[in-house]
Design a protein around this nucleic acid. Sequence first.
DNA 1: AGCATATATGAGACGAAGTATCACAGTCGG
DNA 2: CCGACTGTGATACTTCGTCTCATATATGCT
Lengths: 147, 147
Amino acid sequence: MMATSVDDRVDALLAKLGRRVTGPRRRVARLLAGKRGSFSAEAVNEELPDVGRATVYRTLKLLSDAGVLCKAILPDGSPRYSIDHSWHHHHLICSSCETVQEFRSVELERLLCELGDEIPGRVLGHQVDFYVNCVDCLQHERAAEAH
Amino acid sequence: MMATSVDDRVDALLAKLGRRVTGPRRRVARLLAGKRGSFSAEAVNEELPDVGRATVYRTLKLLSDAGVLCKAILPDGSPRYSIDHSWHHHHLICSSCETVQEFRSVELERLLCELGDEIPGRVLGHQVDFYVNCVDCLQHERAAEAH
DNA sequence: AGCATATATGAGACGAAGTATCACAGTCGG
DNA sequence: CCGACTGTGATACTTCGTCTCATATATGCT
């Protein structure tokens, strides 16, 4: 039995949202489906020269709101998108290569939930980011050091 | 005995950093000293029309790097500055009025530290933000509802 | 105090990232 | 197949921040 294609899933998602299935949306979704790691909106733009800039931004926003994509903010403030694989996670952001990885901890989640109860006002959500040097970057660093 | 003035403290800080004490820097620092809550770089700009835009940005960066100011990122990605009162804290960001409050938890800090040990690579730092509706906004909301 | 020099300033150009507008095109229910 | 409504894309515009460079100023030295 065949796995559902990316297009089928996009169609289903858009139908569920009451949005129209269009060529540009399919092209953006297909590109994202093939991506690993995180990427900027402009990167998507450049890879899809025949899709308008505004449409790319609109579609990324649409998919983020739908929970398909997840948006992380680099230390310098610039946003990166990545496929959202899980119901809830946090980020490991590499400060040198700017890669964004997902990261989960039940323990952290529970503590954040407890803390949320103590916070005055209504808690809508939270975000935890670790700024790191990833394993790859550390290796390159060491390779460079070893004259 | 008199408390040290803002200017005295700014002078001392700049001397410690090996930076020059200048009029524009004093004017920015004096404005910030009188501020409550968080503010954008542009807001500082507008309140100091006779200080150049570039200088305002440079000074905010200088003070952030020095640990006097702390930079928080709103959900939409735009940065807000606030006076940094503590050695380490996290943020409560109100999604409706965009106020940024500080927030500390020894427990959270300890857990984050433990998690950091388990993370592959070198951990440089972390950031925790709670997105909330603050007490003030909830009150206004209720007042509006009660026709 | 006066001088030399490194540092800081500010006007404005530049750039990146995202949004608004609007005529036109495409989708989809009937 | 048609009509209405949604989506698209070119482009102008906004916002935020950085860069450049001529000018101004703080500071160490004498």
